[in-house]
Design a protein around this nucleic acid. Sequence first.
DNA 1: GCTAGCATGTAAACGGTTACATGATTAG
DNA 2: CTAATCATGTAACCGTTTACATGCTAGC
Lengths: 174, 174
Amino acid sequence: MLELTILGFLCEQPLHGYELKERIKGLSGHVRPVSDGALYPAINRLVQAGKLEQHTEPGTGAAPRRILSLTDTGRADLLARLRAPKDVEITDGQRFFTLLAFLRHLPDPREQVAVLRRRQDFLEVPASFFYRDGKPVRAENADDLFRQGMLRIARATGAEEKGWLAEAIAQLER
Amino acid sequence: MLELTILGFLCEQPLHGYELKERIKGLSGHVRPVSDGALYPAINRLVQAGKLEQHTEPGTGAAPRRILSLTDTGRADLLARLRAPKDVEITDGQRFFTLLAFLRHLPDPREQVAVLRRRQDFLEVPASFFYRDGKPVRAENADDLFRQGMLRIARATGAEEKGWLAEAIAQLER
DNA sequence: GCTAGCATGTAAACGGTTACATGATTAG
DNA sequence: CTAATCATGTAACCGTTTACATGCTAGC
């Protein structure tokens, strides 16, 4: 997922590691900034795999910057990942959001719609925490104040997301 | 986080591993079921640490069940984790929800309120994806349909959560 | 003089997934 | 007879976090 994020940002423009870190921080809204120990090894893996090219430029302050840009291989890889996300990338809200952030890079709107539909299908299964006897528990019936809150928030999120998905798909199909 | 979940469920009643797995699946709503390779080692770590006791009972089907129950040490550990969550457990929605699911086990409502307030404070910082020049980007101004959706959904979730937090705190203080 | 920001990296430890391994019972 | 469900576990791998390490520039 971090690799997808890197490819996604570099698809827009060449960036160096530090700037990439800033963008990632901005993307997830201070919730989970990426650590250097994850970022730099990920960049190196992508360079090794021929998905990124690099050239050095002097930095504003200290160390020289390693400017990274996407190769054709890298771009192809990004598009493949966006076109055919794994199930968990549809299922897991965090990961789906990462996908969404870069879905604009898919050239064909029909491919974009296909991804949105997969999420829509997933949301059809009445999302809920606490299944009892295989059926979702309603907020009113949850055991305590806190679980009621969880259900209430989850439901509001689900409703908004379903609404947006429907609108977005309609718009893309026009 | 998995360990907290195990302790949380066992605080309610003794369970065997398989049943625990079912509960965890129910909790996160089929989004991310826990794998055996994560669950059983986690259980063993907790047993080793003296936080769980076990005794064997015949299973309904195949292998005998290892019924697990919380020791005093285990319960103390659970309460400590709930009372003093790490920053990332407040910040990260997924983790905060796990916390919420078991917050009822904290005996003192004032301690529950303290946790909710920490989340409230975090949500004060206008949550948003895509900071440009240090300021959050508004949904209308987002670069594309998909990022507009992300912002719209994030905002709806934030609003609902803030609303609930305020109500819940008021209720607990009464 | 010191702190914050810029800029890059490595190594150990941790937690989790995936795949492998076994085997019994029940429903189709 | 076969698949799904029940029930437990191990080993290899993978990505991430945390901590460590370096060093320069700009502003207070």
